[in-house]
């Protein structure tokens, strides 16, 4: 799994997502976010929602992407299991696959994406993001 939850922050949840390019980091970050809210494997892929975004930097693009997922989950009342992301520069097109939200599957409500320790960086061939989620 290209993400892991990081121990530390007491009131919230932090994760680290890695990949061989930004596409993988964004997709892994989305999966981590889904896993904060519900058991991702219990969600089917029967419906699709599309997201398009453009931001000034890759860091802001990830922040906007994850914030948009939180917004879409709440306003479309959907849970997602998979995210497919295409990135061109600092533009993004994503397809989220999931099903209508249900009370029984909800484990945690995400309030928002914090900027505390929020970072995207690249070391050689490894691409990485650290994200703290307010729950």
């Amino acid at each position: 799994m290209p993400y892991r939850f990081v121990e530390g922050i007491v009131s919230d949840i932090a994760f680290e997502a890695t990949g061989s390019d930004w596409k993988e980091v964004f997709e892994s970050s989305a999966q981590a976010l889904f896993s904060v809210m519900y058991e991702r494997s219990s969600i089917s892929s029967e419906q699709r929602v599309e997201i398009s975004l453009e931001s000034p930097t890759i860091s802001e693009l990830l922040y906007d992407f994850l914030s948009e997922i939180v917004f879409v989950i709440e306003t479309k009342n959907m849970f997602f299991s998979e995210a497919e992301v295409e990135i061109s520069g600092t533009r993004l097109a994503a397809r989220l696959w999931g099903e209508p939200a249900s009370a029984e599957k909800l484990e945690c409500i995400v309030k928002g994406i914090s900027l505390h320790n929020f970072a995207v960086f690249r070391h050689g061939k490894e691409y990485k993001a650290t994200v703290t989620v307010d729950i």
Partner: peptide
């Protein structure tokens, strides 16, 4: 939650605009 998300971005830009040093981006 959304108001905080929206204005975190506004205030991130404002911090740069007004030259405010932030020990934590949040």
């Amino acid at each position: 939650h959304q108001i905080c998300t929206d204005y975190l971005k506004v205030h991130s830009s404002a911090s740069k605009k007004y030259n405010i040093w932030l020990p934590d981006q949040q």
